[in-house]
């Protein structure tokens, strides 16, 4: 389709600017999801398995944090990373790294809360066996996380889905700088404001397509995993 300037046409033609936007979106959201997993999975598992004062409060807090609007997280990170803020000296505001920080803060509670639920359910099933085998606390957490790995794939996806589709936090901390911090969602916001609705819709469809493909891949992995481990 020569001369086609819709997002599809550009993507099919391998338009470098559009590909860079797609690549940055994926890099930011995947990094944030991975970091959030490193923090959230052990945290969720620890909350599931330990009894401490304020545990109930912690669970309510994690569940509530799942619903915090991205724009509030964006504003908070913005104030922290601004040159006039406490972490301003790192010069991270308006960089992809700042967007990763914001999305990590957004996704961690989702992964932690869902992990807690998953691990707690599995723990109800495993409790007697592991206790009878005298398994120590750290190994217990590792066992449950490993054995829940296929459910946790879904959890990670939920986190990635939220990260990839949000615009509120990254447009504030990233600044939507062309070729540097412009992602699919911030580009959609920009094209809409320029009144270029067809390009905005095209980008939206590309975004949906990517999310569908990643979900389908994860589904295949999950089914293959279940066939293996039951």
């Amino acid at each position: 389709m020569p001369g086609d300037t819709s997002a599809f046409g550009l993507l099919l033609a391998g338009d470098p600017a559009l590909l860079a936007i797609v690549r940055l979106s994926l890099a930011v959201s995947l990094s944030a999801t991975a970091l959030a997993a490193v923090i959230g999975i052990p945290l969720g598992a620890a909350v599931a398995l330990t009894r401490f004062r304020g545990r109930e409060g912690m669970i309510v807090f994690l569940n509530a944090m799942m619903g915090v609007p991205p724009v509030v997280i964006g504003l908070t990170v913005f104030l922290l990373l601004s040159r006039s803020g406490p972490l301003g000296s790192f010069g991270l505001l308006f960089t992809p790294q700042a967007m990763i920080v914001a999305q990590t803060i957004m996704v961690t509670p989702i992964i932690a809360a869902l992990t807690r639920q998953t691990v707690e359910d599995l723990w109800a099933e495993y409790r007697d066996e592991l206790t009878a085998m005298n398994v120590g606390p750290l190994r217990k957490i590792a066992t449950l996380v490993w054995d829940a790995r296929f459910s946790l794939v879904t959890t990670l996806l939920a986190g990635f889905g939220r990260a990839a589709s949000e615009v509120g936090s990254i447009i504030i901390v990233g600044g939507n700088i062309e070729g540097f911090t412009r992602t699919m969602t911030t580009a959609i916001a920009l094209e809409t404001s320029k009144g270029d609705l067809s390009l905005a819709i095209g980008l939206g469809i590309v975004l949906i397509g990517i999310v569908v493909i990643i979900n389908a891949l994860a589904w295949v992995v999950r089914r293959a995993g279940e066939a293996y481990a039951g």
């Binding site: 007697d128 066992t143 296929f150 293996y228 481990a229 039951g230």
Partner: peptide
């Protein structure tokens, strides 16, 4: 009712 770990 033994619980089978999700392994081989």
């Amino acid at each position: 009712k033994p619980a089978m770990l999700r392994r081989s």
